[in-house]
Simulated scan of single mutants.
Amino acid sequence: MFLAHRPGAPARTITGEADAANTPWLDLLDPTPDEQALAARITGQRIPTRDDLEEIESSSRLFMEDDAVYLSTPLVRRMQDNFFVSPVGFILSRNRLLTIRFTAYSAFDLVARQIADRQDKLSGDEVSVLIMEAVVDRLADILEHLGQSLDTLSREVFQADQPSAGKGDMVLRTLLRRVGRSGDLASSVRDSLLGMERIAIFVSENKKHDLSERLRARLATVARDIGSLNDFVSQTSNKVQFLLDATLGFISIEQNNGMKILTVVSFIGVAPTLVAGIYGMNFHDIPELGWRYGYWYSLALMAATVILPLLWFWKRGWLGPGR
């Protein structure tokens, strides 16, 4: 999809060069090869592919080509409990901004509505600042939701009732997956913030593409917001690591409880087996061989070797609450 965003008008699909006239923001959304070729003819710029936008070197993400500034960053998108990361590209020339993205983002949709509601003239520089502000606001919302989710998860880890027998392993596995997903989301948000910070710095310091003082001030505000969000991400990452360690600790406790049961079962099985082995030997001179109560004596002895260890383990709290 190839869209044109003009002040005072809804987004319009571009099918020819005339549709892009006097448009401050051209938007390639999951473009086809034909749409990429049309964008190249309209802008006179090289249109990077998805592989180009996914390069991780700074020199591939931030550079000048002719009079255009090429920028790219990974950007996280959250949908309910799921999220994924997709690259976003910006080509900022003197008259317009061209964006290349491969999935819809609510921040871009918000800026598109803001432009449609305005009547004053916009430059590509101002559109780029609007998008950066909206993206950072959206990342802040994701972090806020992540912080609330971690608070809920923390209460479930430390304040939840003891799960019923047989369900503890399943509950802990579920908690471990949720902690892992939270850590992945925090890491993805950090990458997005780092990319936006580099873009803001590169645009504000670029000598061949001067910005007005008003836009520089807004970019400085964006940079400060990103710095505070990075601090929040660091705190969130520490909390994720703490919850991960705590969950793994509870899993170790569950495993130790399982080993206790195996130890008890093994221990109480040894003594009666020993008694049965002694009195099952085929020697002629066994004192109890002709004893009238020998059979009942051996059964009682085996029962005692089972009951007494069970009572001992129970008092130590291995089989239930101790006294």
Score class of each variant (00 low, 15 high):
F2L: 10
H5L: 15
G8W: 05
A9L: 14
A9F: 06
P10T: 11
P10K: 05
A11M: 08
R12I: 02
D19C: 01
A21R: 08
W25I: 00
W25G: 01
L26N: 10
L26V: 06
P31T: 08
D34Y: 02
Q36E: 11
L38E: 06
Q45H: 00
D51H: 08
I56A: 10
S58P: 03
S59G: 08
L62D: 05
D66T: 02
L75Q: 12
V76R: 00
F83R: 14
F84M: 01
F90M: 10
F90K: 03
L92K: 02
N95S: 14
T99P: 05
R101D: 12
F102L: 05
Y105T: 09
Y105V: 10
A107V: 12
F108K: 05
D109K: 07
D109N: 15
L110F: 08
L110T: 13
A112C: 00
R113Y: 00
R113L: 06
D117M: 07
R118M: 07
Q119V: 05
D120N: 07
D125W: 01
S128V: 06
L130Y: 06
E133F: 04
A134K: 07
V135C: 05
V136E: 08
R138V: 03
A140V: 04
E144I: 11
E144W: 10
E144F: 14
H145F: 11
D151F: 06
T152V: 12
S154I: 02
R155K: 08
Q162M: 12
P163H: 08
S164G: 15
A165Q: 08
V171K: 07
L176I: 05
R177V: 05
R178I: 06
R178M: 12
G180E: 04
S182P: 02
G183S: 09
G183E: 01
D184F: 05
S187N: 09
R190L: 15
D191V: 09
L194Y: 02
L194W: 13
G195Y: 01
E197S: 13
I199W: 02
A200Q: 07
S204V: 08
K207H: 03
K208P: 01
L211I: 15
S212R: 11
E213D: 14
L215Y: 09
A217Q: 13
T221R: 13
R224C: 01
R224K: 13
I226V: 13
L229K: 07
L229M: 12
L229N: 02
V233R: 09
S234V: 14
T236D: 10
T236C: 03
N238S: 09
L244P: 04
L248M: 14
F250V: 04
Q255C: 13
N257T: 15
N257G: 12
G258E: 09
K260S: 09
I261P: 11
L262H: 15
S266E: 06
F267I: 15
P272K: 03
T273L: 11
G277F: 13
Y279I: 13
M281Y: 10
D285M: 07
L289N: 11
L289C: 13
L289Y: 09
R292A: 11
G294F: 10
W296G: 12
W296Q: 12
W296R: 15
Y297M: 05
L299Q: 00
A300S: 14
A303T: 15
A304W: 02
T305N: 15
L310S: 09
L311Y: 09
L311E: 08
F313N: 12
W314Q: 10
W314F: 14
W318D: 06
G320Q: 09
P321Q: 15
G322A: 08
G322I: 07
R323H: 06
